[in-house]
Design a protein around this nucleic acid. Structure first.
Lengths: 305, 305
DNA sequence: CAATATGTTTATTATTATTAAAGACAGACC
DNA sequence: GGTCTGTCTTTAATAATAATAAACATATTG
């Protein structure tokens, strides 16, 4: 008789199985630690421990009487409990959802069916609702007047505005970076990045696919000099959108990547000069190229409006 | 016998009352329009119309038989239905919540009790959850590992990073603005803004309170030249935080506001020169002052860490 | 009697179940 | 053929519920 469970009892199941492990390490007849000790050890509340102990008693694994908890027998395979299917959290959902939108070319204007999607992504419906609510801050989805959600991005306009915004943020990072003292650790990191770029350039004909992760790393390093939670939050979305598209835009991929590498190298060079204007100019050149690539990748996938 | 209602039947109640109005305008014995026509007219689904018609029939207001809907009598006061209490939507919640945090000086680290707060703000619990989820994008709240939410901002660090971010965005706007052609409508708007500033300066001794809305308007106009959804989204938060604090920081308010007006005027002047560097410098000077004011207003309210 | 244990109660959240509403489809009617 | 109604399916908003955490009270032990 399985009753519907409002909240999943994952914590109970895990704690129970963990307690079995603990019991198996003791001799039959031994005393178990106090409830407080157990709850601290397993990192769950005393309530969970007490439920688990009660069940251990019911299954005659321990003899529970007040504060006496005497081990009566070791566990066997059947004593183990099976938990409910694990649902994904909101963090994993983010990349899976954006990946779905971009990979499947879900057109702007699509009505997002929460009931259906929650099954597809194996998350609770309300997790999706909360997720959409947070995505709406980036204008990727909007709430419909009387319930439901509509996918807005990624249109051409969205790409343009995202690119522009990225340019504003990254120009700022570059200017900051150029002003850092020579003994700052960033310079060593740039040296090693430069080497990685040069290495890849030598084997670009066959390894041009390796550029995407390097690009991500490069921009992450540049932006790391600005410690700002808003910049960081946006970087996540920017990174996802750009790299997803670059990954699937196969036209002239080798040339594009080679050009980008040379732009990266030019930017590193400009940064070393520690001339903010020169560095910013180099950054803007590269970001403009990036923007064009993003736009062309949207156009080949045709539904951009 | 009132049964619990999962979803509120506000739409039904409103449609029903609206139908009563409609009936009262007809003569007894007249035919009502088709269900489709009624649903189009009232802007609700046919399902709602049908429920309402059925009830009208039950109350002997109409005689419903297939597509015949004959009016039998006019309505009286008792026929009117009373809807369930109206809950606020997520849009109204935003300013109310931020206002509560800032006005009550809710300290960073406070655990946000969804059950309690949903009563206080008269919204559904899940509305609050979705709202917090969207706020988490701005780092104002964070989700706790196993459920619940914690208020993070507004710490001193938050203020610093928000100010810096604002400076980045607004410097960009200012550079854009300085590059606009002379026949662009923005110049006329700046002229009128300048006049408003000059006017206020004359009566600053008694009307220094009028500066806050003018400040908001000023920055909104400056930023309006950049058409970018991300910039717009942030402007909302920035505007709320800054203006709320300025409103409550009473130390040297007259001097602060007078200084700010002069900085605004200097910025307008610099913009008119259409020299991007000069304009940006003026903007940064003003934003730096603004940042200091925000920080000092946090310090006087003491719990900033 | 102080410290620590368990027993009991309360509060809060995550998730399910339920209802209102929207929309689709098919047959009836003019 | 077009419009109308009857029926059914799908979806999202909300209330109800089980799991958990945490607070409080009482008992036990050294």
């Amino acid at each position: 008789m399985i009753r519907p469970m409002a909240r999943t009892n994952t914590r109970f199941v895990e704690a129970y199985n963990e307690l079995l492990n603990l019991c198996d390490q003791l001799e039959v007849g031994a005393y178990l630690p106090s409830e407080n000790a157990l709850s601290a050890q397993l990192g769950v509340s005393r309530t969970v421990i007490r439920s688990a102990l009660t069940r251990l008693d019911d299954c005659s694994i321990i003899a529970l009487d007040g504060r006496e908890k005497i081990l009566r027998r070791h566990s066997n395979v059947e004593d183990r409990l099976e938990g409910p299917p694990v649902l994904l959290g909101i963090e994993e959902l983010e990349s899976r959802f954006l990946d779905w939108v971009l990979r499947m070319d879900v057109p702007p204007g699509t009505v997002l069916n929460v009931a259906q999607l929650s099954k597809d992504f194996s998350v609770a419906t309300h997790t999706l609702q909360e997720f959409f609510s947070s995505l709406s801050r980036f204008g990727i989805v909007v709430r419909r007047p009387r319930g439901g959600w509509v996918l807005l991005g990624f249109t051409k306009n969205y790409a343009v505005e995202l690119s522009d915004f990225r340019t504003v943020l990254e120009s700022n990072s570059v200017r900051h970076l150029a002003a850092l003292p020579l003994d700052h650790e960033i310079w060593a990191r740039l040296d090693s990045l430069e080497q990685e770029h040069l290495d890849l350039l030598l084997r670009i004909d066959k390894d041009f696919h390796d550029f995407s992760p390097l690009d991500e790393k490069f921009h992450a390093v540049i932006n790391s000099v600005v410690v700002n939670r808003f910049v960081k939050e946006f970087q996540k979305i920017i990174s996802l959108v750009f790299h997803y598209h670059f990954q699937w835009n196969k036209t002239h991929e080798r040339e594009r990547n080679e050009d980008a590498i040379r732009e990266h190298l030019a930017l590193i060079e400009a940064l070393r000069s520690r001339d903010a204007d020169k560095a910013e100019a180099a950054a803007r050149r590269h970001l403009a190229t990036s923007k064009q690539t993003l736009l062309s990748s949207l156009e080949t996938n045709s539904h951009a409006t």
